[in-house]
């Protein structure tokens, strides 16, 4: 996948005019408040293709401005979120999707914390439900910290006393 990175980057000096232009354009595009919020939410989940991990709503370069304007136009045209995301994925690659899709490889990503939650919960539940006899049967290590069984007993009792 070719990233449109270098080819579209313009010298920074040229940033001012397009910015003013795009501001002009975006204000001419009449969106309702709900639509504006929706466009912003979608923009938050689209990565600026030439920055390090910034969404297009935060980045100030031309390509982000263009993409954001594109989002607003598509929102105004009544396209669904999924349609807009797949449009950008087709144009710039899955790379720009900051909210990774929950299919294919993405299932691994979204599934991992859930698997950890489930597995950890199971281990914890089994540990807390373990019968006391099972632990009592466990032999203490042959070389505990204390060589003296009496001292060990005293420590055990002292600990119990502290808990009371």
């Amino acid at each position: 996948m070719k990233r449109p990175a270098s080819s579209r980057q313009r010298p920074a000096g040229a940033r001012l005019l397009p910015l003013a232009f795009s501001l002009l354009l975006s204000s001419s595009l009449a969106l309702t408040t709900d639509q504006t919020l929706r466009a912003e939410a979608i923009g938050d989940n689209l990565r600026c293709p030439i920055c390090t991990g910034e969404p297009i709503t935060q980045s100030t370069n031309d390509i982000s401005r263009e993409m954001l304007r594109d989002v607003r136009e598509q929102v105004a045209a009544g396209r669904s979120d999924a349609e807009i995301y797949s449009y950008f994925a087709a144009r710039y690659g899955n790379f720009v999707l900051l909210d990774p899709p929950k299919d294919g490889v993405g299932m691994l990503l979204w599934g991992a914390p859930l698997a950890a939650l489930g597995a950890g919960g199971l281990v914890l539940w089994r540990f807390l439900r373990r019968r006391p006899t099972a632990a009592a049967a466990a032999t203490p290590g042959p070389e505990g910290d204390t060589f003296d069984p009496y001292l060990a007993e005293v420590q055990r009792r002292a600990r119990r006393g502290k808990e009371a």
């Binding site: 938050d44 989940n45 990565r47 991990g53 899955n94 790379f95 720009v96 999707l97 900051l98 990774p100």
Partner: peptide, 15 residues
Amino acid sequence: GRRDTSVGPAFYNAF
């Protein structure tokens, strides 16, 4: 072999 995924705040915040 190519950079094809990004993980953004949407994922982290969901959990």
